[in-house]
Design a protein around this nucleic acid. Structure first.
Length: 502
DNA sequence: GCCGTTTTCGGCCCGACTGTTTTCAGTCG
C-alpha cells in the first residue's frame, strides 16, 4: 500500500465524521494526518516496519490513535473504524461531497430527505424539482449543484505547469493594462512552481477593486463566472481551468502574497506560530490586537514568527519551517546556476530546430555547453536516426561546433533501450559520442521486475552515462511505468557520473 | 484526534462569496 492509499482512508474518515456532525477539530486532525502522510517522502509502512508505533508518532499530525490505525491497516489490510463509519452508505457515496457546491451539510440533508446516495440520483432529484423545495435550498442552489455535477464529470484534473503558465501570463497582461491595477503577482501552485497546477491564482493591489473584478470576469478567456465579489472573483476558463483573482490594498501586498501563495499546509503552520506569539496573521497583514504591525512585504510575515524568508518553491508544509528554524534552508538552484544542457533534439529527429539554431539560443542563455542528443532508429515515431545517419550527424555537430564560438557542443545521442536491455546502437557506434543517454521508449507495460532488469542492463553498458525519464510518465497524460527505482539507483556503476532525471 | 518556552487539559488559522435568510449557514480556498 502506498502513502496515498493510507491518506485516502483517513481523509474518508474525516469526511464521514463531518457528514455525521462530529467534532470539528477531530475532523481536522484526520484531514491533517491524511495530508501529512501524502506528502511524506518515505513509505509510511516502511516507517512502521523500522520503528513501530513510536516512530509513526514522530510524523507530525500522527498521534497515538492514528498510529494504531495505521498499524491495523498494515496488519489486516483494513480498518474497522472506517468500515463501521461507511456502514449503510454505498461505496461511492463520498463522491457526492467532491461535487462543487455540495458540502457535508447539503449531502446529509439530501440523503436523509430524498435518499440521494449517488451522483445520478442527485441529478435526477434536482431535475425532478425535489431539491429546491427543501429548507435552506432554492432554485439557484439547485442549479449550482447541477453545474457542479457537470464540472465534476468533465474535470480534467490538474494541468502541467507549461500549459497553465501561458494562461496565467495572458491574464496578468490584460490586467496590467488597467491604470487601476498597481502590483500584480501570480500566486498559488504556479508561484510555488509545482509540476502540475490545479488553478490559477492572481493577486492584484488596487484602490479600485471593482474595476479589476469587472475586467477579470469579462476577459475573452473566461467561459463562466463562478463567483464575483467586491475583492474576490472566480471563473472557469475556456480550457476548463479555474482562475481566481483577489484584490487587496497596496499596504497588504506582502501578507496577501503569502496567504495566496500557500500551500494551505504551510499557511496553517505559519498562522499557528503567529497565534503562539499573540499575533493574528491574515491576508491583510500581521496584527497584534487591533494594531497592524506589518504586511506590506512578504518578509514581514516570516519575520513576525521568527523565521527567515522561505522561497515559494519550498512552502509545502513538508519540513521547510523546521529547516528555516534551524537555519538549514536549502539553497535553491537558480536559472543563472545552470551551465548547460545535456539533452536536446534537432530536426534530425523530433526537434524543431537545427543544430546551429539550438547552439545560438543556448549561447544567448549563457550556457557553456550543449549536448545534441537525437533519437535512435527504434524510436521511429520520433524520426530516430540509423547508425549510419548518426555517424553523419556527429560530423555535422563537429562542424557546427567549430563554426560557433563561445559554446562547447557535445556529440550526444538518446539511445533506445530494447525490451531485453540491449541498446539500439552497437558499442562501436556508441563510443563515438561524448554523451550517451539511455531511455525506454517502447513496451511501457512490462512487469516491474522485467522493467527494472531492462533498465539496469542498459545502465551497465560502459558507454552509457545518463538515464533519461526513468519512469516514463507524462504528467496528466501517461502514468509512470512499473519500475523499482531504488533498485535502479543502487546499480549506478561506480566511478561514473550518472544523471537520472525526469 | 493532536499537541505543548502559556498548558498533559484546553486549546485548535482565517476570511470571502452566495443564497436564503432577515442575521447567518454553508461552501470554498
Amino acid at each position: 500500500m502506498e502513502n496515498i492509499d493510507f491518506a485516502e482512508i483517513f481523509r474518508q474518515i474525516g469526511e464521514l465524521i463531518e457528514l455525521k456532525g462530529g467534532n470539528l477539530f477531530k475532523i481536522r486532525a484526520y484531514y491533517k494526518a491524511a495530508q501529512n502522510i501524502e506528502s511524506l517522502s518515505e513509505n509510511i509502512a516502511a516507517i512502521y516496519e523500522r520503528g513501530g508505533l513510536k516512530e509513526l508518532q514522530e510524523v507530525p499530525g500522527i498521534g497515538e490513535h492514528i498510529a494504531a490505525k495505521i498499524e491495523e491497516i498494515i496488519k489486516t489490510g483494513k480498518l474497522r473504524a472506517h468500515d463501521s463509519l461507511m456502514k449503510g452508505f454505498p461505496p461511492h457515496f463520498l463522491d457526492l461531497i467532491g461535487i462543487p457546491g455540495m458540502g457535508p451539510k447539503t449531502t446529509m440533508l439530501l440523503y436523509k430527505k430524498l435518499k440521494v446516495d449517488s451522483i445520478d440520483k442527485l441529478e435526477k432529484a434536482i431535475k425532478a424539482g425535489a431539491v429546491n423545495k427543501l429548507p435552506g435550498m432554492g432554485q439557484k442552489k439547485a442549479n449550482n449543484i447541477l453545474k457542479g455535477i457537470e464540472q465534476f464529470r468533465g474535470r480534467k484534473g490538474r494541468f502541467p505547469i507549461n500549459i497553465a503558465l501561458p494562461y496565467a501570463e495572458a491574464i496578468v497582461n490584460s490586467l496590467q493594462k488597467l491604470k487601476e491595477a498597481d502590483k500584480i503577482l501570480t500566486c498559488g501552485s504556479l508561484r510555488r512552481m509545482k509540476e502540475t497546477i490545479g488553478d490559477i491564482d492572481i493577486l492584484v493591489t488596487s484602490k479600485k477593486p471593482d474595476k479589476i473584478m469587472d475586467t477579470f470576469t469579462r476577459l475573452p478567456q473566461v467561459k463562466e463566472v463562478g463567483a464575483k465579489g467586491k475583492t474576490k472573483s472566480s471563473v472557469i476558463l475556456k480550457n476548463g481551468m479555474q482562475a481566481d483573482v483577489r484584490v487587496v490594498e497596496p499596504e497588504s501586498f506582502g501578507a496577501a502574497a503569502h496567504y495566496f501563495t500557500g500551500s494551505k499546509q504551510h499557511n496553517i503552520r505559519i498562522r499557528e506560530m503567529g497565534v503562539k506569539k499573540g499575533l493574528k496573521i491574515n491576508e491583510y497583514g500581521i496584527f497584534k490586537g487591533n494594531k497592524r504591525i506589518g504586511g506590506e512585504k512578504e518578509e514581514d510575515v516570516f519575520r513576525s514568527v521568527g523565521l527567515p524568508y522561505i522561497p515559494p518553491e519550498l512552502r509545502e508544509g513538508t519540513g521547510e519551517i523546521e529547516a528555516a528554524e534551524k537555519g538549514k534552508l536549502p539553497k535553491l538552484i537558480e536559472l543563472t546556476d545552470i551551465r548547460g544542457d545535456l539533452h536536446s533534439h534537432t530536426k534530425a529527429s523530433d526537434g524543431g530546430n537545427t543544430i546551429e539554431e539550438l547552439a545560438e539560443e543556448a549561447k544567448k542563455m549563457g550556457y557553456e555547453y550543449l549536448a545534441i542528443t537525437d533519437h535512435t532508429i527504434s524510436s521511429r515515431i520520433a524520426g530516430g536516426l540509423s547508425e549510419k545517419k548518426a555517424l553523419k550527424h556527429i560530423e555535422k555537430i563537429e562542424k557546427a561546433g567549430s563554426k560557433i564560438k563561445g559554446i562547447k557542443l557535445l556529440k550526444g545521442v538518446e539511445v533506445d533501450i530494447h525490451p531485453d536491455g540491449s541498446l539500439d546502437y552497437k558499442d562501436s557506434v556508441l563510443k563515438e559520442f561524448d554523451v550517451v543517454i539511455a531511455a525506454v521508449h517502447s513496451k511501457f507495460t512490462m512487469e516491474r521486475d522485467a522493467m527494472t532488469k531492462r533498465i539496469i542492463a542498459a545502465m551497465e553498458n560502459k558507454y552509457v552515462n545518463t538515464l533519461a525519464h526513468p519512469t516514463g510518465r507524462l504528467l496528466g497524460k501517461r502514468e509512470p511505468y512499473q519500475v523499482d527505482l531504488d533498485e535502479v539507483i543502487s546499480h549506478i556503476p561506480q566511478g561514473l557520473i550518472f544523471r537520472i532525471y525526469t
